[in-house]
Design a protein around this nucleic acid. Structure first.
Lengths: 324, 324
DNA sequence: ATCATTTAGTTGACTTAGTCAACTAATCAC
DNA sequence: GTGATTAGTTGACTAAGTCAACTAAATGAT
């Protein structure tokens, strides 16, 4: 495991983030100044670049309140930018389609944004541009900006036979990757069996990630108390890693926990599981406790992470205080 | 002059900006989720890291409405985070000082943000971290994120003797840097003289940048019509370049134009003046016209840039439409 | 087939972030 | 002393977004 990041590295990234916030402010201002709010622009962008979207898709992926999004879409529809068709298999859903008018309205904005970036880049020499683009690609690659998977996967509930597979695969994988012994597999079996036997579907759930007919990942959310849910046994098959499946499993877990009015989603992991840890961090989990332990035949560093669920965005708690 | 940026370079930067927006969202969420809104956090950050700030300083530098900031500061003061002292030389101003309680409240946030970045970086190897930090520094250097000047400068109004100096220096500098002939100096003289003789201080202004007793830059804002102001003769001495002076002169010009209820700030430059052009772009100016011309003994490409002043932020025009 | 639960989307009511403009007090130039 | 400007405050307002209750459709258990 690498040395801890230096203070200088940390300071550089924080300074870069402040710098790029200002840079984004300039780019966003140029792009959207004419007619649409920032959020409207983000919605239009997704509608322009993807087919077959529903409102639920957009709400989830852009982190928007469904009611708020509904009004945005209604305004676009009123202006003739958007059409809807009831989904073939689900009368509740509307499939959204940008109209030619919508594309016509969006195109100047898209082109303005492109021109903005072009003029910014034009101020650099060709060598500087190549350097800049390479540096941006490096940042993106290292911080995890990955493309969507080419072979699709789906998430589904637990089915008969799944548990045995999950117990077996997690046992084998952690043995292979980390040398953990059979006591880990036993723990997985215990957790999974307890879930199957006793789980309350109102407050607990399991998701299975399936791809080309095979299980490629899973996660459990179990009830720890009325206020606290626990995320357990997140795993993704090596063959399916890097496709956003782990992130998606965690996102669904958070979504479920919020919908069930939990206040905290907690989890226990080990620091050696670096990919999982990064997913948790990016989802907003906070490291609340660390302790060394000897388990599964190894010396490990266990970590407890929590995600506070009450405020789905960056709204401060003192806004609630000011209501009193 | 370099070739135009490629479509691939433009696309890469746009994708990077979307990617880093999400990255910032994660970092910001972690930093400020507990107690303060994003704007409050930005204010606290400045108060924590700088001394001698006034509300006017903060409003200008963070782009905040003075009334809104006033209320934020009042809340901080009510919570004991902030003290105020009347400025020695100006009874209107209050010098703000973060209290020990304020620092105590801020420190966990600052540390949380630092920890956030540290855990993100910890997920990378040491080699990857060095690569990331180097890439970020490259992006910052190329896009113009420069540090504040070590030797301070001030902006002041025109004084007797300034005009002659400005005419002389601009004439010499543009001759040296671009080979422009004496007709340019004559143009500068004409503009400056007209300003001195006829300017209306309610709607027109000149700023002189002075550093260590010497003029190091200047800019004029003149009235073109009731609705349109024109920014003219921006220049910065080579010895003082890279310190943000040019940007500051442009920012003050914009601020003045807004305060005087102009709707547009326009300007004419030549594309060969790359640094100036970048400042205009970053300030939000839009290239509206280009034409070749032969002036100052050279073949040049003149450019007209406009900045719409009506909406100081990214608020859509249709929000005004929806008021009707 | 029925019923209870969940999901998709909508709408009413509301909170919060931020804007606009009018105000007071202090400063500055004349 | 006077008029104009600036620093900061406050009232009134708009706009972005949240929360929850609602209807309609789907799903799973019986």
């Amino acid at each position: 495991m690498s040395a801890r990041p230096t203070a200088d590295q940390i300071a550089t990234m924080r300074r870069f983030s402040r710098f790029y916030t200002r840079q984004l402010g300039l780019l966003v201002e140029g792009f959207l100044k004419s007619e649409f709010s920032l959020t409207e622009g983000r919605v239009l962008y997704e509608l322009a670049h993807r087919d077959g979207l529903t409102a639920a898709d957009l709400a989830r992926e852009l982190g928007l309140d469904a009611g708020y999004l509904s009004r945005i879409l209604k305004r676009f529809e009123a202006r003739g930018f958007l059409g809807r068709a009831t989904a073939a298999g689900d009368g509740r859903q509307a499939v959204l389609a940008m109209t030619d008018e919508g594309r016509a309205a969006f195109q100047p904005l898209d082109q303005a944004s492109e021109a903005e970036v072009a003029t910014l880049l034009a101020g650099l020499s060709e060598a500087e541009r190549r350097q800049l683009v390479a540096a941006m690609s490096t940042v993106e690659r290292l911080l995890g900006g990955r493309t969507e998977p080419r072979v699709p996967y789906l998430l589904r509930p637990l089915q008969t036979g799944d548990i045995g597979w999950i117990i077996r695969r997690q046992g084998m994988l952690y043995a292979e990757e980390f040398g953990w012994d059979e006591t880990f597999e036993a723990l997985v079996a215990e957790i999974a069996a307890a879930f199957v036997k006793n789980h309350d579907p109102r407050t607990e759930r399991c998701w299975i990630a399936e791809r080309e007919g095979e299980i490629v990942g899973s996660v459990f959310v179990v009830r720890q108390s009325d206020a606290v849910a626990k995320l357990r046994l997140l795993y993704v098959e090596p063959s399916a890693r890097g496709l956003g499946i782990g992130r998606r499993l965690v996102d669904e877990s958070i979504r479920f926990a919020r919908a069930r009015h939990y206040q905290t989603l907690t989890l226990w992991t080990n620091d050696i599981l670096a990919s999982a840890r990064r997913i948790y961090e990016e989802a907003g989990f906070r490291l609340v406790q660390e302790e060394r332990h000897h388990s599964f035949g190894k010396d490990l560093v266990g970590q407890n992470w929590d995600l506070e669920l009450r405020n789905g965005n960056i709204r401060a708690l003192n806004s609630e205080a000011s209501q009193t």
